Amino acid sequence: MIPGGFLPDSPVVNVLIIVIATGFIWFGSGWLEESAEHLSAYYGLPAVVQGSIVVAVGSSFPELSSVVFTAIEGTFDMGVGAIVGSAIFNILVIPALSGLVTDGDLDTNRTIVYKEAQFYMIAVAALVVTLSLAVIYVPVPDGPELAGNLTRPLAALPLLLYGLYLFIQWQDVSDHDAGGVTDGTDIGREWGKLAVGLVVILVAVERLVGSVESLSHTFGIPAFLAGVTIIAAATSLPDTLVSVRSAQTGNGITSIGNVLGSNTFDLLVAIPIGVLIVGSVSVDFAVAVPMLGVLTLATVLLFSFLRTDLSVTTFESYALLFAYGLFVAWIVAETAGVTHLIKGA
């Protein structure tokens, strides 16, 4: 019965809850992102830091919530799937949509390409190494051949790398001379709006995860694949909103910075926090790594487009959307049993 025993646990009710929860995620994220932008302006943060840290962490809260709830409920594979699926969506779809809503090309700069994008690629590699160490040193007894337990010491490795990322960003803030915009800003109100947005997102994601888990059991969809598709799309709404809106106002740096910063946070912070909460979780290397391989290819594709004239053209935007279409088609084929590239699913 859901929620609280008042509604039947049926596919129709679960789909309805998913739609409503997604709407609340969008609503809460709007408050969160608006307050984050005002706070960034108030404290005088540079655009790249605003996009890759403040706004990115705020818009990543749905992904973080999904990992925490799936870890608590014992469906951590679904949470990891949501993170990876959301990261692929962010890399391919959001820059494409941002490029299509601008008048001309979506402009970036060398800071985005040579700092944010390259550090993000390091984050992907760090997560693969962490999962590899789990399989090698903490294998799951009587479990799948390539399953390993992510423990708290292993989860600390990506967090340490994110600490380095924050140090680099702090250096950029120290070198930035712009003063804060304090006129007309009620700082207490903005912090309060941010807190309310976080609470709304937290409750909505908890309902979303529960309904998706129920649907996955009903239709026999593997938890990882359910996370990659349904939860990933819903939790990516905040990132889409803030990046497209930034692109429309001509701020391509904040738009792309949000995408890369959000993905960096998801991989290096969201997944480890889920592990820290429950102590140890099992991850099937055979399921996770093929998806991370797709994420790596998507990242290389976006990096290539960003480096070419430091912009994303209309043609490149359509190419990114086409690549995501291929990814979705592959996931459908895996779920239907047409292909078997994901061995553990």
Rank of each mutant, 00 (worst) to 15 (best):
G250W: 01
Y114D: 11
I72C: 02
T314W: 04
E116H: 14
S52L: 08
R189Y: 11
A47Y: 00
D309C: 08
T254M: 15
I221N: 02
V93L: 07
P158H: 01
I122G: 05
T151E: 08
L146H: 05
F327P: 02
E33Y: 05
A270Y: 03
V199E: 13
L237E: 07
S98Q: 07
V128S: 11
G179N: 13
I2T: 13
I122T: 09
T240F: 10
D107R: 13
V140M: 10
A298H: 00
V101G: 07
A56T: 04
V244Y: 01
F265R: 07
A336G: 15
N109F: 09
V48T: 04
A134I: 09
S243Q: 09
S282W: 02
V281S: 05
A333K: 08
V275N: 02
Y43I: 12
D105M: 11
V57T: 04
G4A: 14
L208A: 08
G104I: 08
T249S: 11
I231P: 00
Q171C: 08
F167T: 10
G279T: 02
S174P: 01
L292Y: 00
R189S: 14
G143N: 04
G143L: 06
G188I: 15
L92T: 00
L301C: 05
V338L: 14
D175P: 05
S132I: 12
L7K: 11
V55E: 08
A323L: 04
L131F: 14
V312G: 01
L198N: 13
E116F: 01
F224S: 00
D105T: 10
P141Q: 06
A345M: 06
S52K: 03
G30T: 08
L326W: 07
G252L: 05
R307N: 13
A156Y: 03
G279V: 07
F219A: 09
T235N: 07
T130H: 00
S243Y: 06
I271Q: 02
S216M: 06
G180M: 09
A233W: 08
A329I: 12
I256V: 14
T229Y: 03
I187F: 13
G325A: 03
Q169N: 13
N251L: 09
S174I: 14
M291P: 02
V138C: 15
T218I: 14
S255E: 12
I187G: 09
A41C: 14
A345P: 01
